[in-house]
Design a protein around this nucleic acid. Structure first.
Ligand SMILES: [Zn+2]
Ligand SMILES: [Zn+2]
Ligand SMILES: [Zn+2]
Ligand SMILES: [Zn+2]
Lengths: 151, 151
DNA sequence: AAGTAAATGTTATATTATAACATAATTGAT
DNA sequence: ATCAATTATGTTATAATATAACATTTACTT
């Protein structure tokens, strides 16, 4: 797992970023959404929706699937988290101001996810797309394997 | 949707390839597996597992989820089909002998999927991986958008 | 033919996600 | 402040995707 020096700092920064961006956009980071974002950030690993639900129930026993999924939808929509399609799981976004061309390195051992960005992705996609006249809209690039710590 | 001139030919070639590869590998393309592969190849679009199940039921009414999923697992394992992670769907592989470094262009309008291969993908991945000592194992690259015919 | 392994059949259930409708909280115009 | 509209949350039910576990059949090996 990502050996960050101070994970409270990671989490707080993510929360602060989200607050700011919401303010800028004029949307609301409600208590519930903030709580869910905080729960997603409990580590640098991915989290599953129904695990979040369990966590949320510890705080508010009346939480139900839509409680979680609605918050996830909001957080996804505004780029505060990402969905890992190959795992049906979610992970906090470490750089929500500039999260284009993202891809994910997923460690099968420790569940850590590293998010990277590279213009190169777009280059591949653009090359191919232009050649065949395909209008790209959303790119999903997920690389699973073994991270430095686990190998 | 892919305007192939003769889709029966596409399907038959896929089936023939699968047969050959199975023979070479010493594994069995049973009647059931062949039927499922044929059903996956009903078009160049993606198919959903439970739609396959419905199709299969028309042939053998006793088909059940494991019937489909086991065949899908076999076909995936041997590279005759691919799973589209961002859609929880499946698509036939058009070049099962050499299906490394594949990625998928998915049309949101007509469900067509074009499978491409490029060494460039590996380059990106290898670059990043070496930099951070990540041992890549499986790459998922899926690009959704609008295809030539639909734009 | 008997024994083993592989494939399929069958029942049940786990996991992931959304639909539909009810209620509450917030906003914003009058 | 009041009302209406919008947004968010609560709640119940169910849809959609996938696997576990065990029984039976089929194919292979000796
Ligand atoms: Zn951290
Ligand atoms: Zn990001
Ligand atoms: Zn065709
Ligand atoms: Zn392929």
């Amino acid at each position: 797992m990502n050996p960050c020096k101070n994970h409270k700092a990671c989490t707080n920064e993510a929360l602060k970023n989200a607050e700011e961006i919401c303010k800028k956009k004029g949307v609301k980071l409600t208590k519930l959404r903030e709580t869910v974002l905080r729960l997603v950030w409990k580590s640098h690993g991915y989290v599953k929706a129904y695990d979040l639900l369990e966590d949320l129930k510890k705080i508010d026993n009346s939480a139900k699937p839509p409680t979680v999924y609605r918050s996830l939808d909001f957080l996804l929509e505004h780029g505060f988290i990402h969905k890992i399609q190959s795992l049906n799981a979610y992970v906090g976004c470490g750089h929500p101001n500039t999260h284009d061309n993202c891809y994910f390195l997923i460690c099968n051992e420790c569940q850590n996810i590293e998010e990277h960005c590279s213009k190169n992705i777009n280059d591949i996609v653009t090359n191919t797309s232009e050649k065949i006249n395909f209008l790209p809209n959303k790119i999903t690039l997920e690389i699973s394997g073994t991270c430095k710590e686990c190998s």
